[in-house]
Design a protein around this nucleic acid. Structure first.
Lengths: 341, 341
DNA sequence: GCGTTTTATGGTAGCGCTGTCATTATTCTT
DNA sequence: AAGAATAATGACAGCGCTACCATAAAACGC
């Protein structure tokens, strides 16, 4: 039977036992060398390492995970990959884990908490060492599993709420608020908003609310507001601004939920001969490089995506066990003055 | 001993045996229901499913992988996450696998074949169902493992070469060549190249060579050429074009290795008052949305990144076994006429 | 109606590794 | 120098699942 079984296996792929035999050591010693764990005599380590490289041994992680009830996998659930923000976060995560032996398994939730829940459950089957997801808002089932699991949890981007374990991000409500204050101070009074319809993009919603609050405090309110269906791209921003200005000719500044859309707005102004900043201010969010490379650098808010990902992953790996108190790390944001508002 | 061991485990997480007991079935039957495999009576399936949801059973993939010597993981090795191209590819991959139960493990190689090799070996420890990587150029060790492994392999982006199993992409050499032909036909004669120094970016190199070949055939050659250190961004493109034009005042067209840099070039022209197209043509590569949203849409080549990722993943999952003949899928490219060259 | 195939289910032995508990050198105290 | 601590190694069971083979029951063929 054993023979039959092996037929379907990686033809003769060497196992711990093979290495042990060749090195003249017990399996457990080889295992310790591989995992760099426990006290090992230098001579032993050398011998084992030699046997490993001679055989081309690759440890079987499935067996290891099963035996130890823990894996080296980190589950990463991102709302989207189209929005450059999340690849940046992912890049930060990878920068932090690259030398640690941890590996990331990626899921894309499409901003949908139900999809997030489904993917989360299927990923928990790997007994991950940590779970990283976006935002603090999850389904009750997802939240329950996150709370009860034997793994670390980092919730990224947002810090306005109660995290399961670690939250790393910024206050989007505050960012929206300060956007409003900043523009009011610069003399803008007739505000427009050109958004998108990702109702599950809690961050964009929080910024919007913060903005409205700043306006309200100053006795102002949004004069005009429009949204495109879907996620919002540069082209969408361009077309949307045209429509918004057609409906509200007297706007003096328009805020976009992200830089991509804001750049579309700028392109529309150039096309339509509208003098940016004097006649119409444009304000974005994210602080993308490309916006800053433009002849008129985009006025926007720099969100520290890479830093968020990197910080979260580092923090996560500090300890295997979840500490008693929750951690909230505010990476903050910078207002980029720019030349468009 | 068993008790001690369980102490460290997921406290009482239900196992197949628990489900089997509750459903009054054998473990193997439950396993079959979970995997949707083999003939199961409807009544049995219903009962098992009820028990699963009652217990909140989550299968242990590590155990499954160990027993079957196969996993549902797909290893994805990308050169970079900064370059928007690769998140697009990843998005395509995820679109294809999202409903299949397969999951992606991501590694970032930084365009370095040695890093690629190291990550590949560490990922093979999971006995992945498939490996997806960029390009056809790998270390001998990596190539050997790819060839001998019991998993499918897809090499993306490039098709100029001999793949291990499946290649999906386009001919970058041809893209470069056609860029040259296209611009020569439009009357350009004094060519400049503003590149970067990613020597391991084989695709950019192939396009460069194709371009040179087209010029050579027409009795031309590059008048001026410069490269920035590192990967090349919009800002780098902007600064590089300034330098290149300072050194070669008589260029009538400049080709960039990607749209990001080309847009930087456009921004420099706007800034310096250079009339784009008439006085200086600008040509990119990738066909990013943002380039097409600009007042003067960028002249460039559309690479079908999303399609490449999606096609590769679909093809990969068609069959578990590697077929005897290799597959090469040419997704082609489109020349976008644009307004900048 | 009796063999033959198909459908549905189960028993059992591992998969390759690591946790737990020993055990035996070796070094350190005072 | 005797006891105590530490360093280095090993035996062995078992993690939770699935491949393999077996078996029983139902459907089929002529």
């Amino acid at each position: 039977m054993t023979r039959k079984r092996n037929a379907n296996r990686n033809a003769g792929a060497p196992t711990l036992a093979d290495v042990a035999r060749l090195a003249g050591m017990s399996e457990i010693t080889v295992s310790r060398v591989v995992r760099n764990q426990g006290p090992i005599a230098d001579a032993t380590r050398t011998r084992v390492l030699a046997a490993i490289s001679q055989l081309g041994y690759i440890p079987n992680r499935a067996a290891g995970s099963l035996a130890s009830a823990a894996s080296t996998l980190i589950t990463v659930l991102l709302p989207s990959l189209s929005n450059i923000v999340f690849p940046d976060v992912l890049r930060g995560i990878h920068t932090a884990i690259t030398e640690t032996g941890f590996q990331s398994v990626i899921g894309v939730t499409d901003y949908d908490p139900l999809i997030e829940e489904r993917i989360l459950l299927s990923f928990l089957a790997w007994q991950p060492a940590a779970v990283i997801l976006a935002g603090l808002h999850h389904t009750p089932t997802a939240r329950k599993h996150l709370e009860q699991g034997r793994f670390r949890v980092a919730e990224l981007m947002d810090i306005d709420g109660d995290p399961v374990d670690i939250a790393v991000g910024m206050s989007h409500r505050q960012a929206g608020y300060e956007t409003g204050r900043h523009l009011i101070e610069r003399g803008y009074r007739r505000f427009g908003y050109a958004g998108h319809m990702l109702i599950s993009d809690d961050r964009a919603k929080a910024r919007y609310q913060g903005l409205c609050e700043a306006l309200r405090e100053a006795g102002l309110s949004l004069v005009g507001e429009m949204r495109v269906p879907g996620g919002g791209s540069t082209i969408a921003g361009r077309e949307l601004l045209e429509k918004l200005l057609a409906a509200h000719t007297d706007l003096d500044v328009v805020i976009f939920p992200n830089d991509d859309m804001a750049m579309g707005g700028i392109f529309y102004c150039i096309h339509a001969g509208i003098v940016i900043k004097e006649r119409l201010g444009i304000f974005g969010f994210n602080g993308l490089d490309i916006g800053q490379a433009m002849p008129l650098p985009l006025s926007t808010i720099l969100s520290k995506r890479f830093l968020i990902g990197k910080t979260a992953a580092e923090k996560l790996l500090e300890s295997r066990e979840r500490p008693p108190e929750k951690t909230i790390i505010n990476t903050g944001f910078d207002i980029i003055e720019g030349a468009t508002a």
